[in-house]
Design a binder for these strands. Structure first.
Length: 377
DNA sequence: TAGTATT
């Protein structure tokens, strides 16, 4: 959006050769959305379950919003844990930073800061660093990397129980070329005082993580009931035919259109609702407050189940708008069931078909569209 | 030897 507006102004300049400079500057300065540097905020480390509406509610308590967007994985619909909030007034943006940065929500501490102007150069500038001496601190890490550019974030991962360094960390640079230079200069080098060389490489991005989730779920599936992933290729086809395929057939590809989905329906059936044994409510009549969507009932979950498990199970099948683990009020342990709301009927259908009977740990899940009696089971 | 910051 930013780039387009700049080009528009350049075009304007070119098309009028006798343009008055003062007038042009005035035009630039009065375009309200041209300079978002003082109104547009990036919100990081959001809790997984936080929705765009939650984000809007929280930040609009400070002042009027021009826009609000939670960033989600394109494939799974899961929150990527960050979003953007653009205020109408820069004073409100300032207020949001001072009052909401560092706010603790669930297990996270959110970060509120000005969003950098979006350019292709700031993408993929995050480095994964391993082989660090256990004694190295975040400050040491910054000292080593700072000659190569502006560091946006850095972190050393620690063992949660002991707080000891795990010898790995991340360094995010402002610009991709800075990260590239750091790799060229630092990868394979031995830090002062250390014994072993460090490995410096680009960090995996979220879509690669999703592939890992899919693969681990697939690998964990019981031999008698393999998990089908909602993608094109052999695996997707496998889901349709409910047949077993060797694990080596696992292939991940962009989510297909549903062109072939109906091909798997038994002869004579033209709608999903008519499938025997499936009591699927229509999208319009099924809801899981407070989110509109198709609600799915998941039964036989272990007491340790948390929301992340439901996101990971259902996210690969398509857009998931909410998950809920029903917990015992006293112990806060899962009571054995939960609900998942999905946006698209066919993705929900495939998830139900694929996950019903799926072996999670030592339990066989029962997954069905939510009915009036789901809670009573 | 893996958390999640650019719409």
């Amino acid at each position: 959006q930013f780039v387009l507006k700049i080009q528009f102004n350049i075009t304007g300049l070119n098309s009028s050769s006798n343009v008055n400079n003062n007038l042009t500057n005035t035009n630039l300065n009065t375009l309200p959305t041209l300079d978002e540097s003082k109104t547009n905020l990036i919100i990081n480390y959001l809790p997984q379950a936080m929705t765009q509406e939650d984000l809007r509610n929280l930040f609009s308590s400070i002042g009027e919003l021009e826009s609000c967007k939670l960033i989600r994985d394109k494939l799974t619909g899961q929150s990527l844990g960050y979003g953007f909030v653009n205020y109408v007034k820069s004073t409100d943006a300032e207020k949001a930073i001072s009052s909401l940065n560092g706010l603790r929500m669930q297990q996270k501490t959110i970060k509120v800061s000005y969003a950098r102007p979006s350019t292709p150069l700031i993408k993929d500038a995050n480095l994964y660093v391993s082989g660090l001496p256990k004694s190295m601190t975040q400050e040491d890490l910054q000292r080593i990397f700072h000659p190569f550019g502006r560091i946006i974030t850095s972190r050393i991962l620690v063992e949660p129980s002991t707080g000891m360094s795990r010898g790995v960390g991340f360094v995010r640079f402002d610009k991709r070329p800075e990260a590239e230079n750091a790799i060229s200069s630092l990868n394979g080098t031995i830090p002062a005082g250390a014994k072993d060389p460090v490995t410096v490489k680009f960090a995996n991005n979220p879509s690669q993580k999703n592939q890992q989730v899919l693969q681990s779920l697939y690998a964990a599936a019981s031999p008698t009931r393999r998990l089908a992933a909602p993608t094109t290729g052999p695996l997707y086809h496998q889901a349709r035919s409910f047949s077993l395929q060797p694990a080596t057939h696992l292939q991940l590809a962009p989510v297909s259109s549903d062109y072939a989905f109906h091909q798997m329906l038994p002869a004579g059936l033209t709608t999903l609702d008519s499938l025997a044994g499936i009591t699927a409510p229509s999208a319009a009549s099924s809801s899981c407050a407070p989110n509109y969507g198709i609600c799915i009932f998941v039964y036989n979950l272990s007491p340790e189940t948390d929301e992340n498990i439901l996101w990971q199970l259902f996210g690969p099948f398509g857009a998931v708008t909410s998950v809920k683990v029903i917990r015992d009020y006293q112990t806060q342990k899962c009571k054995g069931y939960g609900f998942v709301t999905m946006t698209n009927y066919e993705e929900a259908f495939l998830a139900v078909c694929s996950l019903n009977g799926y072996k999670l740990g030592d339990r066989v899940l029962q997954v069905s569209f939510k009915t009036a009696t789901s809670r009573l089971k």
